[in-house]
Nucleic acid binder design. Structure first.
Lengths: 350, 350
DNA sequence: CATGGCAATGATAGCGCTACCATTTGGTCA
DNA sequence: TGACCAAATGGTAGCGCTATCATTGCCATG
């Protein structure tokens, strides 16, 4: 609070913000009527409403949603915790979520875990302190601490939605796809095309690992040698994939692989670049499949075969789940599990 | 509020959230002592603090920051309004901002304008209703309405920072670069390389336009023919650039240009793809320069000459400006103007 | 031994809004 | 005509926290 004005005329206070009360006085009504005129205009007589609207406009009144949230125990806020925003792969999900929620008057609070456990917990605490009505996670929490916080929040009525995966033991609702099945599908395609020396390039987060396990699983089932796995640091960067390709030239080398599944299109693009620079032909010498169907997959040369994930729809679905579940007594709400599937988009690279 | 429990045992309430008071009772102290233990631990005796910490842990207490914000008139929240998050070009700015603010206990509220005036105003109203301590704009507001809202917010003590530009008439602080100078630099380079038929491809937002004007200005100064300008819809998409390249084959055609400046790397990449598919050699037949220095610029083949903008640093600088200015009496705060500059990264494409 | 100062804690009054009751009209219907 | 209802409006008590101003006890100081 600013008491400076009582103390010294040398330190003026910023003009205190206009409140509902100011509008009410201006319009000659009570605060509650102004509140109603703003939130449920139909319940206020037209002339009264007009007077109030005039007062609002002339004062430039912007309702304090923080106060409203406290009073109503509805923050109209949804938190989203992503590993990182710089990786454009989650951008579409954020986009879909934002688009679906902002028209309902919700705001998005964004936090990043940076793929780090400690940061995830801290970010989650910050998020939950804002009392969001929903929390959208990309993936499942990395730590038990985070899981417990989410479960507690859910017990208090917060909607929890995990995305980009279909975890065995979800916290609340889930909207994602089967990362293991993705790996299966890619391995099956490589095998059908007659590739022998498979490799997988990606991070070591749960989702990338699931893709690898599915990949290795199907490779084994089809009698292939175990795929080489190259682990790259998170978040996915082309530079890491390029470095990995350029690195070793021993038996563990990527350049010996004749088919590479990259856990993200970003990695795939790095590998494509490195392979071409090495004079390898893609897909003749090395077939390449990515994941995400980023725009560049369509326009690279050769264009990139990739697993399309509908990130925007995932965000929209998460938003719908939250809007449905919010304010509903917990006893008649059952968490949902939505499998959005994936699609192997076959282009030139494999 | 949930009164259902008084009414009917069939509609149980979600367990009401734990409050400071619950922790206080558990620890045998007053609420204010708990508040202090959490915010300024040094002011609480070690044993008391230990008891409080134990109570917090056993209750799983998460402070309600909404209530705290209302009481203290400090929301510890910063709003960021971007044209879109799907365009990865602003992702690094969001990243830099987030990284710099989250360690200070701030949360980020994200809103998108989608390059639409009406949506910008709506998003801004939603943002300002949350009473953020700072607002980071990508670019300047598109409408006067938005500008007025921002000015009013600033008068109430909100820090306003415009980024990605250096507007003539900034609202508050600015951290960006000179888009016109970027255009000048690219035109100068094209001219020096002996290119004759220049073209510019980009959106029609203020920043892209400034780049074009700088480009045309220098072209004229160096005696070149006025560059062709191809306007693409926002947000920038490779597909639009590809379509533009493939479109007309008349005198207004991009394929006649021997040097193209694309307002973003995304456009540049689309043009690169289209040109190569048409059998044009880059840079021999068509030189190409982008903007943003996205990672793919480094790894495309040919690699992309581009104007590097340090988006992350822009975000960090915006965060610093906000943290500095916040809570400072307005009379001793002077808006700052920070030019982060740009760098022409010469690679293979031009 | 009174005095002052500091460290530790507490009581209280809001922050700006909304939920939950009133209360006041004017009209409808038995 | 009086009971009844719906439409329009108002009064008031918080939401969970923090800012401000006590209050308490303890020690050092002259």
């Amino acid at each position: 609070m600013c008491y400076a004005e009582w103390v010294s005329s040398y330190t003026p206070c910023p003009p205190s913000q206009t409140r509902l009360l100011d509008v009410a006085e201006r319009a000659g009504v009570s605060v509650i009527t102004v509140s109603r005129a703003l939130r449920t205009p139909a319940k206020v007589a037209p002339e009264t409403r007009a007077r109030i609207e005039a007062a609002v406009a002339s004062l430039g009144y912007v309702p304090n949603l923080v106060a409203g949230a406290l009073a109503s125990a509805r923050t109209r806020t949804v938190g989203i915790l992503v590993p990182t925003v710089s990786s454009s792969i989650f951008a579409t999900t954020i986009n879909g979520l934002t688009d679906a929620l902002e028209s309902e008057g919700y705001s998005i609070v964004l936090a990043q875990s940076g793929y780090e456990a400690a940061r995830e917990v801290a970010a989650l605490a910050a998020l939950l302190g804002r009392r969001p009505e929903g929390i959208v996670m990309v993936g499942s929490p990395m730590t038990d601490a985070a899981r417990i916080m989410l479960e507690a929040a859910q017990d208090r009525g917060t909607m929890v939605v995990e995305t980009w995966d279909l975890p065995e033991r979800p916290i609340g609702s889930v909207v994602g796809f089967d990362n293991r099945a993705v790996g299966n599908a890619v391995a099956a395609r490589f095998a059908a095309a007659g590739h022998q020396r498979l490799a997988f390039v990606g991070g070591d987060d749960d989702r990338a690992s699931a893709r690898f396990h599915g990949f290795a699983e199907t490779a084994a089932r089809l009698g292939q040698a175990p795929p080489l796995r190259i682990q790259l640091p998170a978040p996915s960067a082309m530079a890491d994939a390029v470095a990995a390709y350029n690195a070793a030239h021993g038996p563990e080398s990527l350049s010996r692989a004749d088919a590479i599944f990259a856990a993200t299109d970003v990695h795939a693009f790095g590998l494509l670049s490195a392979a071409l620079r090495h004079g390898r032909r893609v897909p003749e010498d090395t077939a390449l499949v990515g994941l995400g169907d980023l725009e560049m997959a369509r326009f690279s040369i050769p264009s990139l075969t990739t697993v399309r994930i509908d990130g925007a729809r995932m965000g929209q679905a998460a938003a719908s789940l939250i809007l449905e579940g919010v304010r509903r007594p917990s006893h008649d709400y059952a968490p949902k599990r939505i499998d959005l599937g994936f699609e192997l988009i076959v282009r030139e690279s494999g």
